[in-house]
Design a protein around this nucleic acid. Sequence first.
DNA 1: CTCAGTGCAAATATTTTGCACTATG
DNA 2: CATAGTGCAAAATATTTGCACTGAG
Lengths: 151, 151
Amino acid sequence: MTTESQVRQEPSLLTTLEDLGLRKTSARYAVTSRIENGSDAFTAEELCRQLPEVGRATVYRTIRHLVDAGALCKLPILDGAPMYSIARVEHHHHTICSKCGAVGEFRHSTVERVMRSLAKEIDGQITGHKMEIFITCNSCLASESDSSSDA
Amino acid sequence: MTTESQVRQEPSLLTTLEDLGLRKTSARYAVTSRIENGSDAFTAEELCRQLPEVGRATVYRTIRHLVDAGALCKLPILDGAPMYSIARVEHHHHTICSKCGAVGEFRHSTVERVMRSLAKEIDGQITGHKMEIFITCNSCLASESDSSSDA
DNA sequence: CTCAGTGCAAATATTTTGCACTATG
DNA sequence: CATAGTGCAAAATATTTGCACTGAG
């Protein structure tokens, strides 16, 4: 979609869990494959609803493992529950469509360069940063122009 | 603290509420003056605890009004409840100390310029952005070097 | 006096935890 | 077979809502 184009073939999330020394269980298989085959961003509750056969606690625990391992990003949504999405690019930022909630990833070297120039203005030592860009995605723009009741 | 130096004398939050056509009540006075005299960032629950004489619902309702009016920023904290801080600079970003939670504000023209250059790479129309910089603030750096048990 | 605003407590939402049971390695 | 992992339901936490009462204009 952006700077980094196709970075397919991320190692399965289940493998990520194994690498952490965790067992390969059917519950974890269900959760990770649902994440990998589902829509790009989701909430914990959504996942629970989609996986009635897996206990709520297990879903939350699995998500936490994946976030800790860096395989999932936790996106702080201002309203309700946080959303999660698979981290495809090492360090990146997110685009979030305010209409439909679609989440995209991008990486832009300028952002990192800005961080360096900010360093001297900040009253402390920078340890990390997070940037979210709110957009109206192209599909939503398209459907908007249908009902052209714009002010 | 940074680019924009002193922008004191923001209109009292209570005035902001009046401008919205809301009444000037004692509960709202209590909430807004507590916010203005308290520490820079706070959670809704903290405010409730500090104002036992004001109902929890009123605290939440007042915060919501202020956020809607743009007088307070809602900072999505990844762990627990979101934090709020007074918006002093029109459009700005935040520094958050990972150790002590202190929140600072800064504005940097380069950030806005980056947004413009990103526009052509993003698959949709940018409607807003939010950037948070995680730091270890100078006070925490100082107290760290005391107990120099660093790995 | 009227109705916006309030406080309370119950409802709702989200996430974590304790514990007995199950199944992976 | 030992114990990591699970499911459930209860607890903990965070926020919203219904409703009768109060007070600002």
